[in-house]
Amino acid sequence: MSNNPTVSAVEWFKSAAGLTISLAVIAALAATIDRGPYILVNTVVTGGMLSLVAMGLALVFGVMNIPMFAHGEYFMIGTLVAYYVFTPMNGYIDQHTGTLAAALLPLVAIIVAGLAGGVMGVLTEKLVFSNLRKRSRENWVMNSFLLTVGLSVVLINLHQLIFGTEFKGIVGYWRGAPLSIMDVFISRDRCMAFVLAAVMVTAFWLFMTYTRTGRAIRAVSQDETGALIVGIDLNGILLLTMSMSCALAAFAGASLLFMYPSYPSVGLEPLYMAWFVVILAGLGNVLGAVVGAFIVALLKVLTVEYIGSGWEFVVPSVLIIIILIFKPSGIFGSEVRGILDK
């Protein structure tokens, strides 16, 4: 390894991560020149929200070793709570367009939904995972995976049972003419969705890097026993991780309510996409998940643009299968130890 920046830059470009990112950027630019800047805008907005969901997924895997199959259901809870909080406010906003309250009330709905997701995460950890952890840690990854499969079935059908199957959607959070960026008109909701995602990702990154709790979480993800030895409250950290990642998913769901009306299985699509992301980026690699989210979003946008809608599961999954064949631990690699053996 050389310290020469040029050499290390070349090295980086030759690595899997560098290659993929460069290719993605080139593809995005080419498509933008070919079809217009809306491709770039779509990619950025979709990728922003996808990164929230994928980050939570990567976090839960990295820290708790749970391959979460029910993550989309927290997205669903987010959309549901935001719908029921926001609908009563709608009339008020209609009468007071342009006021500060009209700008802030949607934020309240989104934040409440995020908090509800966090509470659900706490419940899930307390009722389900801590029980399994107490009883057996043998074959943990597979067992917890199946547990989340059951959880997903239960949550989807609880939604159906209590709230019915009809689409519970809203027209939009923020009123007003769409904004024009790079000659593309984007609705205010989309802009806000991206801004919110950017804020959350930054806040999350700062939290993980600079706070004591964030460091403790990273410590647990690196070595659980070591973390216990230095006096980290393991159960507290696990609880916090679960609740945080569920809150992120619910937050994403709430911010995207205008695109994804709430219905029982609304979470499946974000879940598939988020799984593509974490497998692509390397399971448990939280920062990689953010980059991966944009790559998968680009793949999705390009597929819809050039091949047609409906293919967005086929093309990305085939590409990811190909990537997995050559790079089983994901393009950014995974720092979580022992994943391959579990």
């Binding site: 391959p67 995976f145 047609g308 293919w311 086929v314 999954s317 085939v318 053996d341």
Partner: peptide
């Protein structure tokens, strides 16, 4: 072959998703 546990499950799953997408389209 090179993958274990959850990775293999995911790969099979992606195959399934791709197949279902193909059958739909």
């Amino acid at each position: 072959l090179r993958l274990r546990g959850i990775f293999a499950a995911c790969l099979a799953w992606f195959f399934g998703l791709a197949l279902m997408g193909l059958a739909t389209k």
